[in-house]
């Protein structure tokens, strides 16, 4: 798989002197679904903001498709990396769901039929196709969050970054986001998600990156990261493996990070 984004020795210090990242080296590949976890303040949000230039590394460099991002405008990097923020109310301004979703795609230069198709596909992905003409503030919080997600999907960027997409979502909403993450991966797009929801991460991502104090301390598939031997490392950044993994461990079934893995292991016994 080709490298979509590469971080080389990336460090970041905020203007007030707080160090948020130190020596981060990562390669994110095409079609990869990556979950980033870690306690609050461990540098997850700072890390993903390096990808689209909202923050620039104070040490090291970030390349997208082999091209150094230094000196490239954020508006230009947005063609490659779409970032959906945690709080939808920090971006919603349009009078209708449709024009809100179209905003990003329009900024990237899409017009006419191409724009309509991208907007329609994004609305269908989040299940808001029946609300295209609705005022965004007539939707509840969880649906506004899906709207914000749709506005990033409509940009059809090769890299999609989601910051805490599942907060405020009920089981059906989480399932919907899992489906979106899955289908993005299938179409060869790279999905990077920050989350505190270990179950969601274990179920939907092939690769889990664990951060603590601005460093990557674990990086691997869920079956490795959520293995019992790493429980100490996870606990050091105030995380706990998902219930399925802990249950499998207690039952002596090995590492079963997802519910289907746990059920399979149980059935096989």
């Amino acid at each position: 798989m080709t490298a979509v984004a590469r971080l080389e020795g990336v460090g970041f210090v905020y203007p007030d002197g707080t160090r948020a990242l130190a020596g981060v080296a990562l390669e994110l590949r095409e079609g990869e679904r990556v979950g980033i976890v870690g306690q609050n303040g461990s540098g997850k949000s700072t890390l993903v903001r390096q990808l689209n230039g909202l923050l620039r590394p104070t040490e090291g460099r970030v390349t997208l498709f082999g091209r150094d991002t230094a000196g490239v405008h954020v508006a230009e990097l947005a063609r490659t990396v779409g970032l959906a923020f945690q709080n939808p109310d920090r971006q919603i301004f349009a009078a209708s769901v449709r024009s809100e979703v179209a905003f990003g795609a329009r900024n990237l230069g899409r017009r006419g039929a191409e724009l309509d198709r991208a907007v329609q596909a994004a609305l269908e992905a989040v299940g808001l196709e029946g609300e295209a003409a609705t005022n965004p503030y007539d939707l509840g919080y969880s649906r506004r969050k899906l709207l914000a997600l749709a506005s990033i999907l409509a940009m059809e960027t090769p890299v999609v970054v989601l910051d805490e997409p599942t907060t405020g979502q009920d089981a059906r909403g989480v399932e919907r986001i899992q489906r979106i993450v899955g289908s993005l991966g299938e179409t060869g797009r790279t999905v990077i998600t920050i989350s505190h929801d270990m179950r969601f991460v274990a179920e939907s991502f092939q690769r889990v990156i664990v951060m603590r104090a601005g460093r990557v301390i674990l990086d691997g598939p869920p079956v490795t990261v959520f293995a019992a031997e790493h429980a100490g490392a996870l606990a050091s950044t105030f995380l706990e493996a998902p219930l399925a993994a802990r249950l499998g461990e207690r039952l002596g079934l090995g590492t079963t990070p997802s519910e289907s893995a746990l059920l399979d292991a149980l059935a096989a016994r």
Partner: peptide, 16 residues
């Protein structure tokens, strides 16, 4: 600050 970040991430040009 958050709003500016969110709109720039959607390709709004604030540097041009």
């Amino acid at each position: 600050g958050e709003i500016v970040d969110a709109q720039r991430a959607r390709g709004l040009d604030t540097e041009g």
